Amino acid sequence: MNQSKNTVPQGGRGEEQETRERILAAARQLMAQKGYRGATTRKISELAGVNEVTIFRHFKNKECILIELLEEMTEIRPALERAICAETSDVRSMLMNYAEAYYNALVERKEVLIICMIEADNHPEVFDLLSRMPQTADDMLSQKLQEMHEAGHLPKGDFNIAAHMFVSSFFHAFLGRHWVKVDCVIDIPTLIEGTTDILLRGIDNR
């Protein structure tokens, strides 16, 4: 069988990329366990199985590792697109699928997101990257609602505000459960269903 032209031979860039990914994985694990400050480059190097010189060959400093982790983790557009790309007139099902995809995306990235929320005051660029997740979710949902209105499936409404309120509900639920650690009476499936119905009633009653 012919080797794919995209395959990198052993000993070349493939090994460098594997090393870089091991460093990022080790940093992600240590930052989740020990926080940003506790995840020293020495500990990262030990967990990744490389020396510190190798880390600095791939990253200028530890902050660059954090930025790359956040850039990697804040890209949620593909997951959200899968939830709303289907052509459908069932607005309620679309909203519930979207909410579930968004909330799950947050939970899957919770370790890095919590670290970044803690470090945002010290690193303004971290806050800018962190804000991409809710902003992306807002923009995509607002656009989808507008498209469904134009197709005759929704009455006219302020879809920017509707999308923002909808997305914010699940971001706040995520923070409550995974950062503040408050006891929540409403489970996520019930929250998804109830928030969806409230949004639709608000648009219908305009």
Rank of each mutant, 00 (worst) to 15 (best):
Q29E: 15
Q29V: 10
L30S: 08
M31W: 01
A32P: 04
A32S: 15
Q33W: 08
Q33N: 06
K34W: 07
G35M: 10
G35L: 05
G35W: 10
Y36H: 03
Y36W: 12
Y36V: 05
Y36I: 02
R37Y: 11
G38H: 01
R42Y: 01
I44H: 03
I44V: 13
I44N: 04
L47E: 10
L47T: 06
V50F: 04
N51S: 10
E52N: 11
E52D: 07
T54A: 09
R57H: 13
R57T: 12
H58T: 03
F59Q: 07
K60C: 11
E63S: 11
C64G: 12
I65T: 10
I65K: 04
L66K: 02
L66D: 05
I67Y: 10
I67A: 07
L70V: 02
L70H: 00
E71Q: 12
E72A: 10
M73F: 11
M73W: 04
M73D: 11
E75F: 09
I76A: 00
R77V: 14
R77E: 12
P78S: 04
A79W: 03
A79L: 11
A79D: 08
E81Y: 09
E81H: 14
R82L: 15
A83M: 03
A83L: 00
I84K: 07
C85A: 14
A86I: 10
A86Q: 15
A86L: 13
T88N: 04
S89V: 09
V91D: 02
R92D: 11
